[in-house]
Design a protein around this nucleic acid. Sequence first.
DNA 1: CCTCATCTTGAATAATCATTCAAGCAATAA
DNA 2: TTATTGCTTGAATGATTATTCAAGATGAGG
Lengths: 196, 196
Amino acid sequence: MTKAQFNRNDVIKQSTQLFWKNGYHGSSMQQIFDATGLKPGSIYLAFGNKEGLFKESIQCYGTNSLESIQQTLQKSPSIGLGVISILDKMLLESENSDYCSCFLIKSQLELSQDATQLNQTIKEQLLQIEKTYGQFIAQAYGYDKQQIYATQLMLQIFGIRVYGYLEKSTVALRQALPMSLPWLPWNEAKGGGWAN
Amino acid sequence: MTKAQFNRNDVIKQSTQLFWKNGYHGSSMQQIFDATGLKPGSIYLAFGNKEGLFKESIQCYGTNSLESIQQTLQKSPSIGLGVISILDKMLLESENSDYCSCFLIKSQLELSQDATQLNQTIKEQLLQIEKTYGQFIAQAYGYDKQQIYATQLMLQIFGIRVYGYLEKSTVALRQALPMSLPWLPWNEAKGGGWAN
DNA sequence: CCTCATCTTGAATAATCATTCAAGCAATAA
DNA sequence: TTATTGCTTGAATGATTATTCAAGATGAGG
């Protein structure tokens, strides 16, 4: 018996970077070989094919995103403030010159019409994130608000992830979000430049 | 002299359908030849290359979108009601089984990291749409509201275009939008199932 | 009718695509 | 040590990619 000589998580991370940046069809297996330093056989033995590698990349990204959200919301003084800090982080990311939006959203739009089952995997990850937000929202604002607030939040998140590409100042976004999500404690959030 | 035997607009429309559905990298020139019935030489003589054809497809889609928005807003009893009807139409589209989101948004996300100048073209189209909404909003709600309301509106539109892929009922969206865009005359809009 | 500019044709191009596989290698178990 | 299992190698696969181009077709102007 011989153990694999590479770290599976490292390979997934490197592949995720590539797929996230260039998309599924925009990334070639050759680029994967170059980025990971592995030969075709190793990749294909470990992941089956390009679709399998992509699927694991999506799942890895989704799991990390979910954990990050949960940790942020749990650590924050309140769930509302936690949500605000997540939104703030997204705006800061969008100001970066090599902004890549959200891997799940990009992939969802690219692969929705594809014959593969990938788009089901992606949809599951996105719905899982919405569900998680919903659970925290229910806890803080009541079960009757869960669905509508979660939907509203996802709507704004999706919006930010696309709007970020227009390379406009985030000033307008920092004015718009408090109006669109009036139930969040914007006045308690210090230093984000939020209008309220 | 010989005139081209094909209608340029028809070719662009057919190409747009393909690119819209499958994306830039997901559409092959062979598919273009099949969809249009033209041979390589004709396409390449008329459009230069794949990028040129895609660029014209994007510009055609952008122009049509813009005209549609302007017409709707001008025909409506009020600008606010016009915006609501546009949002309503987007939700209805998203309920369709072969929903394809917005060609501009899909392309923006796919090609933002590409070496081509396509993403500049796409961005211009999106900004032009935002600008147009802004002009109508200024007219109806005052110049001081132009930027913030337009930003808010674009945020919701982008959100809808992504959320539509999750194939959930639009009921939650019809509840969420009136809360996120409180300055629109939801109570005057009949029969859309809007909460207010 | 002839000329010539313009468009169409369709095979050919070279590059790149995802994927395969036989052979070689390494390390564990016996 | 030897046998065996599992990983790595890297060249080779055939399909598909975007693009080109010489040759043929077309039709308007003279």
